[in-house]
Amino acid sequence: MIEKLRKINDELIEKNKDNQELLKKQNLIHEMLDFDDLFFRINVEDAYGILRDLGFEENQLKEVYLKLIDKKNY
């Protein structure tokens, strides 16, 4: 699942390369996604924030988050 987020983030970095503000945010997300255990180390509200910034809809957040914190990823 985290690999999918990394791919989305790469696409958003490419898409926003002319928008410094959005690019900065995506670059920070890129740095965070480099940690394989990211979603076991940051609180759930920060995690939701990241998912929103990656373009997930509000009604998708919980489902995606549950997959990210699944025991098999621990």
């Binding site: 945010k25 965070m32 940690f35 920060d46 924030g49 910034d53």
Partner: peptide
């Protein structure tokens, strides 16, 4: 990671209470 998260919080409006 803590440093990156702190910086991220300052750049985004997407973090809301759950």
């Amino acid at each position: 990671l803590d440093e990156i998260v702190a910086e991220y919080r300052e750049t985004t409006d997407s973090i809301t209470p759950i």
